[in-house]
Write a protein that binds this DNA or RNA. Structure first.
Length: 726
DNA sequence: TTGTTCCAGCTTTTT
DNA sequence: GCTGGAACAA
């Protein structure tokens, strides 16, 4: 066996981790220190050198992206068949186990996975039924409560002792929620984890079976695990020292979501014979950037402590730009980007990072004005879009007509004359008879308890479902999807002119058919669930991140959270102002403030060569002008690393353009237009006066032009606007 | 039952 | 400033 390819690319610390004998291992991996590489090489080492069977490998990550990347990298290094390894997200692996052992876990074989959207709808429904005022108890709060309890491993019955009145109130709803999930045989995200925990805890033979099977357990981003995740990991690895976890306490930025950094300390107590290896050599950033990062994070208390070093050159100083306002800030950033690109560099090597999504707008506008292709990450994901969720709901009903969440969702989408009144009848009947809405509908109809109009509408809906079931037998998955989209009336509904962004929605529905077409169904990995059901689960569990189309060469815009795990040659960290970053809501609490600081650390360490920091003296926030002071994080950086940029005060009139509302995913790189308007043309408008066309998009009815007028700039639909070409 | 208008509220996000 | 939800009118 030639072990060279496995260990040659590693430094001493990395090699020590990769080749260590099987034991509990905690690898503290600083930013840019080769964390994924260690994980990948460790697994390959176990398989190829220690003859561990791929079957015995379990590797858990947080995102599908990380899981896919890991699998891909392992497969290029290993000749063996890697598909026998279980590599996936916590939720993905939990889902697989539950499909496999549905019965023992107390679930129906065809259980559904609710995403947080579905969960919200279910809670909302429940509140109305219980006559609870949403103003008093907001859905979000209840959702948060339920998930928090589940993440802590607590069911209703575990909380019965509570005397606090407020909690008791929540508890009553939690109980009802449990009942409804049971009845519609659905499982939310937190439930996936909790169920698996209980399954393993209460079922000794199963537990032993998996303990023996997974002789090597690997965990990525360990600092982000929550209570229940940690609990089921330890169930799988009770006293055998076979857990290899990688993490960085300085990059824990998901505390607000229930992640517990303390799991790192817990791990150390739980496995007294564990070994700690620190990866402190950074291969990413210049020493200037690294010094800044070390300085910032040193302000946090109670760190495990590590200090990154690099062999890289000093590099350029960090530029700090004090902008006049948010427009000035955006202009500055975009100008620097244009210079960078003009010098022959790639746009995709540049990232603009901000604390909150709302901040992207100004940058988008400037990028658009200058015709710079860009891509915004985040926002609505593919499978979260309403039109897609509706289509999926029809498909779910095809699989399980008793699925109340889906039934409720599409019974009147598109509208077919089934209104609140009829729905009330249905729900009441369902509650009385303890049956699903679908059953209740059948009951009500056979008993002829509905007025004619409502009855007819309901019959037509039930017919539709019946038709789906009969006519899709034998069709392929994508044909099924196509059939349902067409015959449900969804396609026609979204194709109407009056529907906003109609073209985009129609496009998305077509894309869903494509997604079904390219869906890779592997019966064994899906534990023999039907192809359709596997597709639906996948839709819930992967809300459609990185929807395939990587755009050629775009500037990258994203939040600091999204940027974790990525790197860019040039990084703009914008909006460095108190109350924005650190966020105002996080300032009251020392712990949360430290999390903001870690976020800042994450941001800084994304940069490889050049880091720009910027802040504005005033900006529009929530439609109001607010003046802002520099972020405290700026003050924590040593002066000698910084280079202050004086703003050129040629006070530019603030441009208040209408927000462009195109798909957040892309700016059409080349603007092709057959219409009479072209960019650069001088035009005149009755009200706004003279202006210059900055961009043209779409054609026919949807053609619109971005015009820079003297007073402001805006998008105009040419179909409705008179513009005179000068 | 459906479509329109008005008003409050607002981090971060994966699964 | 924008969005979603609730109250309204048709």
């Amino acid at each position: 066996m030639d072990i060279n390819p496995i260990i040659a690319p590693l430094n001493d610390a990395q090699r020590e981790a990769v080749t260590a004998p099987s034991q509990a291992m905690l690898v503290l991996a600083g930013a840019g220190s080769g964390k994924t590489r260690v994980l990948v090489h460790r697994i390959v080492w176990q398989i190829q050198v220690n003859d561990v069977s791929p079957q015995s490998i379990l590797a858990v990550t947080f995102t599908n992206k990380a899981a896919n990347e890991m699998r891909g990298r392992i497969e290029t290094l290993v000749e063996n068949n890697a598909s026998a390894m279980w590599i996936g997200t916590f939720h993905g692996i939990a889902h697989r186990l539950l499909r496999r052992h549905a019965e023992q876990a107390g679930l129906q074989k065809n259980f559904q996975v609710l995403d947080s959207n579905d969960q919200q709808r279910l809670i909302k429904r429940l509140l109305t039924d219980l006559n609870i005022d949403e103003k008093e108890l907001p859905v979000k709060e209840i959702q948060w409560f339920i998930n928090e309890q589940k993440d802590a491993g607590l069911r209703c019955k575990d909380l019965l002792e509570t005397t606090d009145n407020n909690t008791r109130r929540f508890l009553q709803i939690y109980r009802e929620y449990e009942i409804r999930c049971e009845r519609s045989s659905s499982v939310d995200f937190a439930e996936l984890l909790l169920r698996v925990y209980e399954l393993l805890r209460d079922n000794e033979s199963l537990r032993t079976q998996y303990q023996e099977r997974f002789s090597q357990i690997h965990v990525d981003e360990f600092q982000d695990t929550n209570h229940i995740q940690y609990a089921w990991l330890t169930l799988l690895s009770p006293n055998r020292d076979n857990m290899f976890v990688v993490g960085d306490d300085d990059q824990a930025i998901y505390g607000w979501r229930g992640a517990k950094i303390e799991n790192i300390y817990k791990f150390q107590q739980h496995y007294p014979n564990h070994k700690v290896i620190k990866l402190e050599q950074n291969y990413r950033s210049t020493s200037t950037i690294l010094k800044a990062a070390n300085k910032i994070i040193a302000n946090n208390q109670g760190r495990i402590g590590k200090s990154l070093w690099t062999e890289m050159t000093e590099g350029e100083k960090i530029s700090v730009y004090a902008a006049y306002d948010e427009v000035d800030e955006a202009k500055y950033v975009v100008e620097r980007i244009r210079n960078w690109v003009a010098a022959g560099n790639k746009r995709s090597d540049v990232a603009i990072l901000y604390r909150s999504n709302a901040q992207s707008r100004q940058f988008e506008e400037q990028l658009m004005l200058t015709q710079t292709p860009y891509r915004v990450y985040g926002g609505l994901r593919f499978f979260d879009r309403a039109e897609i969720k509706n289509a999926l709901a029809y498909l779910r009903l095809l699989e399980t007509p008793d699925d109340n969440v889906s039934f409720d969702r599409v019974i009147n989408t598109p509208t077919r004359g089934i209104g609140l009144k009829t729905m009330d009848e249905l729900r009441q009947c369902a509650a009385e008879q303890q049956v699903s809405l679908w059953m209740a509908a059948t009951l009500l109809l056979t008993q002829q308890r509905l007025p004619n109009r409502a009855a007819n509408a309901l019959v037509s809906f039930l017919h539709l479902l019946e038709q789906f079931e009969r006519k899709t037998v034998g069709l392929s998955l994508s044909e099924k999807v196509h059939f349902v989209i067409e015959h449900s009336g969804l396609m026609a509904f979204y194709n109407q002119d009056k529907v906003e962004k109609s073209a985009e929605k129609v496009e998305n529905l077509k894309e869903l058919v494509n997604a079904a077409e390219s869906f890779k169904y592997r019966a064994d990995e899906e534990e023999n669930a039907s192809e359709l059901s596997a597709f639906l689960s996948r839709a819930s569990l992967e809300s459609g991140e990185s929807q395939g189309d990587e755009f050629d060469d775009c500037v990258q815009l994203m939040t600091l959270h999204t940027a974790k795990g990525l790197e860019f040659r040039v990084v703009f960290l914008v909006g460095m102002e108190e109350d924005l970053f650190p966020a105002q809501q996080s300032k009251s609490n020392a712990g949360r403030l430290e999390e903001e600081r870690r976020l800042c650390y994450v941001g800084i360490t994304r940069a490889m060569e050049k880091l720009y920091l910027s802040h504005a003296e005033k900006r529009f926030l929530y439609g109001r002008e607010t003046s802002s002071s520099k972020s405290r994080f700026l003050g924590e950086l040593p002066k000698e690393l910084l280079e202050e940029i004086r703003p050129k005060r040629e006070v530019s009139r603030p441009i208040t353009a209408k927000s462009p509302t195109f798909s957040t995913f892309k700016l059409p790189p080349e603007i092709q237009s057959e219409g009479k308007y072209k960019k650069g043309q001088h035009v005149s408008h009755e009200i706004f006066g003279k202006g210059i066309i900055g961009n043209v998009e779409g054609e026919g009815k949807t053609e619109r032009v971005f015009v820079k007028f003297r007073e402001d700039s805006r998008w105009l639909l040419t179909a409705y606007t008179e513009l005179t070409i000068l």
